[in-house]
């Protein structure tokens, strides 16, 4: 089959109304939680979220996961909001809203996609903190959305993408390489289209577009580099795209790590073995959480 041209794809995007739409509740909630800390009305946010029963249940489940550091179980949205604080609540609401944007049916297990994305978000935020990056919450969000182009591929070009995915899984190769080989484009391109469609922040668009091509990031190279490293660590720790890739990587020699080292003096003081063990500790919790969220 001939590779899809970018213009074909653009046409499909223009002509189809199959692009995922974000839950309507997300933007008012994000507006609420993005105000100055003193102006945030948590009660109002809780009220907004509680209008969506499914979302409320998901938020509570996620809030009670050890991944978000809750020391004791909470049973109400209000208690979760008060205990977690604004930043974590925003991360959780955003994660739950995005997870609702999942293609139904098809041959590819969407929960693997969200396991990868959620793990990537957590790792990017953790790495950002350790390396002194100014906005770890931004790193969380960037990790969460970096691969959304894969969902777009599942929706807009399902036959071509499924074929590429199955080949990548059978050959245990990186998905992006096989996407390019089989379709002539990869999920960063479609992710970029989605970010335009959704009017996402420029820094998120850049991560979606450049996370495998870090040297071309210009707006916030450190952020894109953090997500690239988080992505690699997810894939070596068993939270890739739902299959085990057969690859080896020396992180220190990756362009992304060189960018990080140029931006943060703390990079050379990070024991990567220890950090990898921290990452491995997430794996089961992430799987458990995503599985629960998908079966609610």
């Amino acid at each position: 089959m001939p590779a899809l041209s970018l213009s074909d794809l653009h046409r499909r995007v223009e002509n189809l109304n199959e692009l995922p739409t974000l839950p309507a509740i997300l933007f008012p909630v994000l507006n609420q939680l993005s105000a100055n800390t003193d102006d945030i009305d948590l009660q109002k946010t809780v009220h907004l979220v509680s209008h969506d029963g499914a979302l409320s249940t998901q938020v509570l489940h996620m809030a009670n996961s050890p991944l978000f550091g809750m020391r004791q179980r909470v049973n109400t949205l209000r208690a979760a909001a008060l205990t977690l604080g604004v930043h974590r609540l925003r991360d959780i609401v955003t994660s739950c809203c995005l997870m609702q944007v999942s293609p139904k049916g098809g041959d590819i297990n969407v929960s693997s996609f969200w396991e990868h994305s959620l793990a990537c978000a957590l790792i990017a935020r953790n790495l950002a903190r350790k390396l002194g990056y100014s906005d770890p919450e931004r790193a969380y969000l960037a990790g969460l959305v970096h691969d959304l182009g894969i969902l777009v591929n599942m929706l807009l070009i399902p036959a071509e993408f499924t074929r590429a995915y199955k080949k990548a899984a059978a050959e245990q190769r990186p998905l992006r390489d096989v996407e390019l080989e089989e379709m002539g484009l990869s999920h960063e391109i479609t992710g970029d289209l989605l970010s335009t469609h959704w009017c996402l922040f420029d820094y998120l668009s850049e991560v979606m577009r450049r996370h495998h091509d870090v040297e071309r990031a210009t707006l916030d190279p450190m952020l894109t580099a953090l997500v690239n490293i988080a992505d690699l660590l997810c894939r070596t720790s068993g939270l890739g795209y739902g299959y085990q890739e057969n690859f080896a990587v020396v992180l220190e020699e990756e362009t992304a790590w060189k960018i990080i080292a140029a931006h943060s003096q703390r990079a050379r003081h990070l024991d990567m073995v220890c950090f990898t063990l921290e990452v491995e500790a997430y794996v089961n919790e992430v799987r458990k959480l995503v599985s629960v969220l998908f079966h609610l």
């Binding site: 690699l232 660590l233 070596t236 890739e245 220190e252 990567m272 073995v273 063990l277």
Partner: peptide, 25 residues
């Protein structure tokens, strides 16, 4: 071993990540 690190022990090895495992090159 699984949790053993050369961090601060030797600078001329590079850590390499494999699926589920690490080694030094």
């Amino acid at each position: 071993g699984h949790a053993e690190s050369l961090f601060g022990v030797h600078d001329d090895f590079r850590l390499v990540h494999f699926p589920g495992a690490m080694a030094y090159i």
